[in-house]
């Protein structure tokens, strides 16, 4: 009986002591916004911890002691983050040149200096090896792929990048720090990120010119449904930070939300602004879905980034301040210089 008590005491002590050990580590974490990324400096280098948002039990832990000269990226966003800290020259392979913006990188692909990997689904190990790849950054859609596991087994450092699952735009941009660690340019990345945060906060706290918050819808018809960013997504956070009242504020989730098309049609009379319709012109919108003409907001102001989609996908994640600046100008009605957005002509 006594030994049982002792055992119980031991268990309680063991449970209680564990968080105490981790606390100092958390204090050293360099990431302030991100819920998925932790970067902890150590004497020899950095410990990078990445949480898989789909599987709470899956955590990736990397001990990075030196930087990488040759990095392969599987998403345009990763390319943009490397460019943001001036390290794009370390790219040895890119996702698909059709979806890239940076003309320098596209040129390098055409010259054969940078390999075109096409897609995460049809990843070619041969191409990666031929490029003498040291590290691979992938977006980690769904469960871990066998191909990635295979690459790890031959000694390639494969790092998932879940920036697209963050719910705050600054948390997304904070993944730039990961690229800072990978390229040995953490100081530069930190300076960059600090600047972005300052810009972001400055725009956010600017006094607005009009008193009422504009009622805004986002998204487009996809198949039989209306698809838009959900209320807890980073897009919705951007809308909130420029004082938009977002149509899907009541929706659940941090990714996309869906709504029936007739319900959007009937409940959107007060919408004054339509963002991200997915097409760069009103004619293209009508060609894609002729019934858009019945939506009350089809005749209101519409802003898209799809006239230059690749630029948005490559650079928006690393430059949330630019996106916020665009939205703020759109909100105030005084459009001077938009980075990503364009108004659809009447």
């Amino acid at each position: 009986m006594r030994s049982l008590w002792l055992l119980l005491l031991l268990v309680v002590w063991a449970c209680g002591s564990e968080p105490q050990q981790q606390r100092p580590k958390q204090a050293q974490n360099l990431c302030k916004y991100s819920k998925l990324l932790k970067i902890v400096p150590t004497e020899k280098g950095y410990i990078v911890e990445i949480q898989n948002p789909e599987q709470p039990k899956e955590q990736f832990k990397f001990q990075l002691k030196q930087s990488f000269e040759r990095i392969a990226a599987l998403s345009a966003t990763h390319v943009g983050m490397l460019s943001a800290i001036g390290q794009a020259q370390r790219l040895c392979a890119i996702p698909d040149k059709r979806y890239l913006h940076d003309p320098q990188i596209i040129k390098a692909v055409k010259r054969g200096q940078v390999a075109d990997l096409k897609s995460e689904q049809q990843l070619s190990i041969e191409k990666l090896l031929a490029q003498r790849t040291q590290a691979l950054v992938y977006s980690g859609f769904g469960p871990e792929q066998t191909q990635i596991k295979r690459l790890r087994s031959i000694g390639l450092t494969c790092i998932p990048n879940y920036e697209w699952r963050e719910t705050h735009p600054l948390a997304r941009a904070e993944w730039v720090l990961l690229f800072g660690v990978l390229t040995g340019q953490l100081d530069k990345a930190q300076r960059y990120f600090k600047q972005v945060c300052q810009n972001y906060q400055r725009i956010r706290t600017q006094p607005t010119l009009c008193n009422t918050n504009p009622f805004v819808i986002s998204g487009y018809v996809y198949g039989d449904q209306w698809v838009a960013p959900a209320a807890n997504s980073f897009e919705a956070k951007l809308y909130a930070d420029v004082d938009f009242t977002y149509y899907f504020n009541e929706s659940a989730g941090t990714g996309s939300c869906f709504s029936s098309i007739p319900s959007v049609l009937t409940n959107s009379a007060a919408v004054v602004l339509w963002l991200n319709p997915g097409q760069p012109t009103r004619a293209a919108l009508l060609q894609q879905y002729p019934k858009y003409k019945y939506f009350p907001f089809f005749k209101k102001r519409i802003f898209c980034y799809t006239h230059n989609t690749n630029f948005y996908w490559e650079c928006a994640a690393a430059h949330p301040d630019w996106v916020l600046s665009d939205l703020s100008q759109i909100r105030n009605g005084h459009v001077k210089k938009l980075h990503f957005y364009k108004e659809l002509r009447q």
Partner: peptide, 20 residues
């Protein structure tokens, strides 16, 4: 089942002829 409450007769018309 496909009926949706609409704010105006014109909208109800669109809903019926274009959707339902």
């Amino acid at each position: 089942l496909t009926e949706v409450s609409s704010s105006s007769a014109a909208q109800a018309n669109v809903l019926w002829w274009e959707f339902r």
